[in-house]
Design a protein around this nucleic acid. Structure first.
Lengths: 214, 214, 214, 214
DNA sequence: AATGAATGAGAATTCATTCAT
DNA sequence: TATGAATGAATTCTCATTCAT
């Protein structure tokens, strides 16, 4: 999404721009974020921004993808760290709680993601998602499908239902984390409690001797 | 919240204004909604808006309260229709699914409420909430506390945890309903599936003969 | 300047209007004073103002004349109270200090007069003055001419010069009185000191035997 | 006070803007002066004004300081031209009459200063004065104190009284000069007559042998 | 490639005045 | 005569974007 010129920029300058933009976009809604302020804070000419990015929107998308990539990195790392053949709920906890750790690296990245859900034109949201090929709930749904197959989730529950619940729970805590109402540690605890309840709801009932469901 | 002038307006005109404002505020964030556009669409002079409402904020509050009242009406009705002494989960389903019915009357009313939850200007939400004296998640938490007392919810689960889960699930479906991605019927079905899982997770395990939980 | 309708108004209502208008015009510049606010505070319909006065300007003129008349009354009274055949400086002190007493009756009247000098379009000022046939410096000039004739003022000094000095001194103190920086008593003291110096400057030098000035 | 952009402007354009602004601010009160009008008259885009100045207030301050600096230059020059060790009244005449010469350069500069003295929004004057670090009457008072010390002013007269009289006289003539009712030459003559009278009032009575004052 | 000045549309809001009832 | 709703022009200020250098 950035133009080639941006890639050719000296690292330091590129960093300054990203930093300034992160500050601005994470602090205020997309609509109220101001390119003027970003340029000023980054110490470059306002006009130069248009040398690097098509327009405000393109800059935003770039940051958003950046945030996504970092988050994904955290999540992947957390999942890698699991033992072999982890069960569905273990993956989940690892992934989401791992994602929360992004807040420790740079809260603005998390905030950016949350702002996105929040104040983007409903239409734009999809435009961006499409534009970036982003996952989210759907990944969880895949995991859930796998979980059912392995007997870790009650087969009568649709994977999409499981995914929605988990996603919603994660968003709920994530919002408060990004808003600073919860510390990363608190968020982790909070989410664990949620997932425990969900686990009770999603796991098949003890398949003890010859039990028939329903 | 509106000035007296607004109440004295001929029904048709008032309707036009409310309609235009709903269109604007439900389609876009508060920040980007434009009084100018609203006035134009309603076919009245820009200045007249200020005869009816103190300012942009007052207009927004009026609509928001409107939406809240209608939603509450639906919810109340749904709860009234329950038999005597309904259990926690019955109340929940009734209330939330009842609330979804607002979308049948006017999807924009629902959308307005959802936008609100989304808009997260620091302190802004509180400002509106305060201005209107409104509840939300906290009501569910009270219900949950009562549910625990009655033995309908596992006592080891914090009411706030239960409330958060339910609220998150409801928001998740509500968002899609408001966005028109789900029909009211689909939303109802969808939410029922979610709540069923949650119920399994929240209810105490059958306290039948000498069973031990976990 | 007011329309007939205004004169026909019940005393109480008329009073309310004058009061509200005085509040507004004395508190803020003519430009920023708002008919809307005046009408609201007086408890009458905004449109009614136009039944009583041609427009904002006419209302202002009416108040201004009112203030002038009250001030004149104080001045006249003060002059009447002088013994017979008073000397020029006695008249002056009486008149101006008398004028200051207006502040005791209603500071807003004094403030109105001062605002007038202050923020009226240069052009308007004369328009109003003409419109009302007002005196001021010119009256003092007449007194000064008389003072010269009687030998109370050095004949080499032009009456206009004397008048300008006195007027300027009076305005200087009057401004601060109206602004509330000086109490009526302080203003009186302050002005007395000024006039004493002026007296020394204006009176003929002691006409002792055969003296030649300069 | 202006932004850098303004300084970088081609002289001609800068001149056009200053000119337009001077016209506007010298002709009308700060409140009624309109940036829109200024921009239009200067032939630049409305938005450009904000490239040059923070806001309306900053523009005003800039002009005001300009006027002040020019005036000070004239005054200084006039004072320099005095012989060594000039007496109080010589300084005064030089200073004030010197200040009047500003009107020859640009009457609007003088008018601007006078408008300022007139505008009396509560606290507004202080705001500007503070913003610019400016003196005024107080300088004269200092001179007067010095004059007393040197025996050029009757010690029974308070310096503040002397200052007020002189300031008032100067303002009186200055106003008419700025309004164009007096030519610079007339103003000079006029003020000289005033100051002569004041001198007679302020100077100690000839301290010749055994004389008794009053 | 970089600059930064210029632009003009658009935002919220205010207000004197008119006019139909 | 009294009302008060309606109007529209005016206000200050912001911003993304363009363009000449």
């Amino acid at each position: 999404m950035p133009k080639e010129t941006f890639s050719n920029l000296p690292e330091a300058k590129r960093r300054r721009i990203i930093d300034a933009a992160l500050d601005e976009f994470s602090a205020d809604s997309y609509g109220r974020a101001s390119l003027t302020r970003i340029a000023r804070q980054a110490g470059i000419a306002k006009g130069s921004m248009y040398q690097y990015f098509e327009d405000k929107f393109a800059l935003y998308c770039y940051l958003f993808r950046l945030a996504g990539e970092r988050k994904l990195a955290f999540i992947s790392e957390a999942i890698q760290a699991l033992g072999p053949d982890p069960d569905f709920f273990a993956i989940l906890k690892a992934a989401i709680v791992g994602g929360f750790r992004l807040a420790r690296e740079d809260p603005r990245l998390l905030a950016l993601g949350n702002r996105f859900v929040l104040d983007m034109d409903p239409g734009w949201r999809e435009k961006v998602m499409a534009h970036l090929g982003i996952k989210g709930e759907s990944t969880i749904e895949e995991w859930a499908r796998e979980g059912v197959r392995r007997g870790e989730i009650d087969p009568r529950i649709k994977p999409s239902t499981a995914a929605r619940l988990i996603w919603a729970a994660s968003e709920s805590v994530g919002q408060e984390l990004a808003a600073g109402k919860l510390s990363p540690d608190q968020a982790e605890t909070e989410f664990t409690e949620l997932i425990d309840v969900l686990e009770r709801g999603l796991r098949p009932r003890s398949p003890k001797k010859g039990e028939k469901n329903r």
